[in-house]
Structure formats: structure tokens, C-alpha cells
């Protein structure tokens, strides 16, 4: 498994090819969104919704052999693209690394520039929820 920072750096590289062109960045996000496999209806339920997102995001997490697998989905394509990057970075990592991760790629790829504040808040809620899962699984493991 690649480290969190390794994957972040890969994403930063991919975005650097787009040279900060807004149209292309958004199109790339949409492409990423389309590639993310959708969650089944049984997981697209109220309990799995991440609060704080302007569009709906569903997030589920499984803990097996010391690592967390995240699966997520959204009803909007752009959010799906954002969510897919978080899943790519944090899924398969151990709770400790997830909790201590510094997700600098958001700033580096200029996400704040093309995803407005309200939507960034949604992203922040998503990250918070992923870290909460990490915390919960870690606590469970230590019992």
C-alpha cells in the first residue's frame, strides 16, 4: 500500500498537467466522479449521509486486518470527483495514519480556488467523518 503522502503527491502531479485551468480541473473532477463505483441502494441511506455537504454524500467504512476501507458516493458528479480522491488517499490506510494525516493536496491542487467555501466546508465535513471512523476503529481495537 502506498503511503497517504505518496498518493497525495500523485494527485498533485496529475493536476499539475492541467496548469490550473479551471474548466479542465472541473472536467477532470467529473471524470474522476464517473469512475467511482456507485454505492448500492442499501448503503445510500440517511444514516450514511455526511452532514455539512451542500450536495449529498454517503460514506461507509469497514475495518479489517488493521486497515479501513472507505466507500463513498454522491448525487452530484463534481462532489463525487472530490470524494473519489479522498477515498483513493485514505482507503486501505491504518486508523493511526488516517488520524494524523495532513491532507495538503487540497491546498496544493488549488481546490479552494475552484470549489467555493460552502463546498469546501462539505469536504471538511467528509474528512472529519473519515477521521472519526478512524478514531472509532482505533478505540475498538484497543479494547
Amino acid at each position: 500500500m502506498k503511503s497517504i503522502n505518496h498518493i497525495q503527491d500523485e494527485i498533485i502531479d496529475e493536476f499539475s498537467i492541467l496548469e490550473g485551468d479551471l474548466d479542465m480541473c472541473v472536467e477532470y473532477l467529473i471524470e474522476l466522479g464517473k469512475k467511482l463505483s456507485p454505492l448500492s441502494d442499501k448503503h445510500r441511506v440517511e444514516d450514511n449521509i455526511v452532514k455539512g455537504c451542500q450536495s449529498k454524500v454517503w460514506l461507509i467504512a469497514n475495518f479489517q486486518q488493521g486497515t479501513i476501507t472507505f466507500q463513498a458516493d454522491s448525487n452530484t458528479m463534481i462532489t463525487k470527483g472530490l470524494v473519489s480522491m479522498l477515498v483513493r488517499i485514505l482507503s486501505g490506510q491504518n486508523p493511526d495514519d488516517i488520524l494524523n494525516s495532513d491532507l495538503y493536496f487540497i491546498h496544493k491542487i488549488g481546490m479552494n480556488r475552484f470549489i467555493g467555501t460552502q463546498r469546501s466546508n462539505g469536504l471538511a465535513a467528509m474528512i472529519k467523518q473519515m477521521k472519526l471512523y478512524a478514531l472509532a476503529f482505533m478505540a475498538k481495537e484497543q479494547k
Partner: peptide, 20 residues
């Protein structure tokens, strides 16, 4: 197509609409 995606993409074209 979700209205949110339309709104964000119109904004990239400099067009301000409201969604929601």
C-alpha cells in the same frame, strides 16, 4: 443531471445562477 453540477460548471463559464 444534478442542479449543483450545473451551477458549478456555469460558474466556471463566468455565469452566476442560483441552485438549490
Amino acid at each position: 443531471v444534478h442542479h449543483f453540477d450545473l451551477g458549478v460548471m456555469l460558474d466556471t463559464k463566468g455565469i452566476a445562477v442560483r441552485t438549490g
